[in-house]
Nucleic acid binder design. Structure first.
Lengths: 115, 115
DNA sequence: CCGGATCCGGAACGATACTG
DNA sequence: CAGTATCGTTCCGGATCCGG
């Protein structure tokens, strides 16, 4: 039942609320937990930890722990997730460029629905 | 509050469970409701209707009603959503190619967690 | 500093029956 | 044919507290 792992299930992981931002950030170079927490606006500590764990589980991210004090954990995109880096950046910049356009399309649609 | 419409909110719409499949299908040419229902494996009638409405609302799909009997409604990707067609196809084929790899990465991770 | 564990409200999702 | 209405469930995500 959960054994399927169809293409759509894979995309669910990538399409998770925060996955794209995390993958893109971790593709540039190793990033620490707190760096991600600061750079990704709006993410909660819990969701960051949870998404990181899931991405690591699927082999999209590596997690390296340094036995120092204070502790230091670095996350890095794997070759696998790097393959879609360009596509993810395309989506992100597209979303950024057209967000106003989409917002007004939404507003216009809702306006028509009122009468 | 819900007024933000940041890039991430836009991506949430595109990243919905069924949005990618629908956009890709509607980018090839006009498609009817029942065609989509048959071609997208696992989607429920309710979610198809709901996702179509949201995509139309955001200006990513057009909806054309023909006043015939039986009724006929066609959906078609807009220029806006076509801009990300290539990226979406890239993601889909990537997911398809690596799903086994990801499934075993997940299994290996879960295995290590057991001891 | 880097997380894990728990609780909880709401949103997303699915199945099915019904309708113009 | 192309949806809507209703109901029940599951899961996401925020808040908070705890630990190595």
């Amino acid at each position: 039942m959960t054994e399927e792992c169809t293409a759509r299930e894979v995309l669910d992981r990538v399409g998770g609320k925060w996955s794209i931002a995390i993958i893109v950030a971790a593709a540039q170079g190793p990033v620490r937990f707190t760096e991600l927490e600061r750079s990704i606006v709006g993410i909660s500590r819990r969701m960051l930890a949870l998404t990181l764990r899931n991405l690591e589980r699927d082999g999209l991210l590596t997690r390296t722990v340094f036995a120092t004090v204070p502790p230091r954990v670095e996350y890095l995109a794997t070759d696998l997730s790097r393959e879609i880096y360009d596509a993810l950046v395309t989506l992100t910049t597209w979303a950024e460029r057209h967000r106003m356009e989409i917002a007004s399309a939404r507003a216009a649609y809702d306006q028509r629905a009122l009468e």
